[in-house]
């Protein structure tokens, strides 16, 4: 017993927190990549997450394409859509104040969500988990749905892969260099605009991937992203704007903190992340992993 909560229940809640943290980590990673390299505050991230889930749903209902293929195809489709948006519209705003990028992506999110709400209503549609991952295992202290276990593994793997891509590969080095000094990198013959488009597509694709992962757990609905996006922004701020490792670690960490709050004081579970954000901003304005400017 810890503070009147049975240890078994506490273990269960820790695990649940880790599962939710997986979504926070994946989504805040995408945001951090886009902000870190493009200096764009991507308010369309929630909409791109929702698009991922809906793409999986449409692939299944219209094309008969199963979950496993959708897990690869949907992020690619969302990434492609994002690349088009970046090329045709967003890239024109780089020269302006970052506020314009924020306003543009916010408007874009509203337009996408409004369109889906028009066609699908607010209740949305169900998406079944793949048969290989349905069912649950009894861990003794809790009943773990196999699908949720898979979510933790898949998101962890993708997070590590993206971190390696950006920190350890040649492409990642170009990307980082392009943000530091785009003119110099271009002078070395690197196609900087293409790099930026790819980066935005990668960030959006990560959101789409999280959307497909989320589809069997939550109702696939036009509002699924807007309910989550504010929390994810808080995660990015706590982790340090633009810090990739910070986004990942903070995502899992805050998922766990939120899970524990649901046990000790459930009414506060919606605001605990923001309370932490406020405290971090006061003590370390650059975030836990951010570099002081």
């Amino acid at each position: 017993m810890i503070f009147g909560i049975p240890l078994q229940a506490l273990m269960g809640q820790l695990l649940v927190g880790l599962i939710n943290g997986s979504f926070y980590a994946l989504l805040s990673l995408g945001l951090a990549v886009i902000f870190g390299l493009l200096r764009v505050i991507n308010f369309a991230h929630g909409a791109q997450y929702m698009l991922g889930a809906f793409t999986a749903l449409l692939l299944l209902t219209v094309g008969g394409i199963n979950y496993w293929l959708a897990l690869i195809l949907a992020p690619l489709i969302v990434g492609l859509f994002a690349a088009l948006v970046e090329r045709s519209m967003l890239s024109r705003l780089y020269k302006l104040d970052p506020l314009y990028g924020l306003l543009f992506t916010f408007g874009l999110a509203l337009a996408i969500e409004g369109t889906f709400r028009y066609f699908y209503g607010a209740s949305g549609k169900p998406y079944a988990a793949p048969p290989q991952l349905s069912g649950a295992v009894n861990l003794g202290f809790m009943f773990l749905p196999i699908y949720r276990g898979w979510v933790v593994i898949a998101s962890l793997a993708v997070c590590i892969a993206v971190w390696l891509l950006i920190e350890k590969t040649k492409l990642g080095a170009y990307l980082r260099a392009a943000t530091e000094n785009p003119v110099l990198v271009q002078a070395f013959g690197v196609n900087v605009p293409l790099l930026l488009t790819l980066t935005y597509a990668l960030g959006a694709g990560l959101a789409g991937f999280a959307g497909v992962l989320a589809a069997p757990i939550y109702q696939v609905s036009p509002l699924m992203g807007s309910n989550l996006i504010i929390i994810v922004f808080a995660v990015v701020v706590v982790g340090g704007m633009g810090s990739i490792l910070g986004a990942i670690v903070t995502g899992y960490l805050l998922g766990v903190v939120e899970g524990l709050t649901k046990v000790f004081y459930p009414e506060a579970s919606n605001i605990v992340i923001f309370v932490i954000m406020a405290i971090v901003l006061i003590l370390r304005p650059a975030g836990l992993f951010g570099k002081e400017a």
Binding site: R148, G259, P266, E267
Partner: peptide, 18 residues
């Protein structure tokens, strides 16, 4: 008690289960 428009109910469900 859970906040309106929550997305994840697993914590609450585990409490109900136990």
């Amino acid at each position: 008690r859970h906040p309106l428009a929550s997305t994840d109910f697993s914590s609450f469900l585990l409490q109900a289960q136990s």
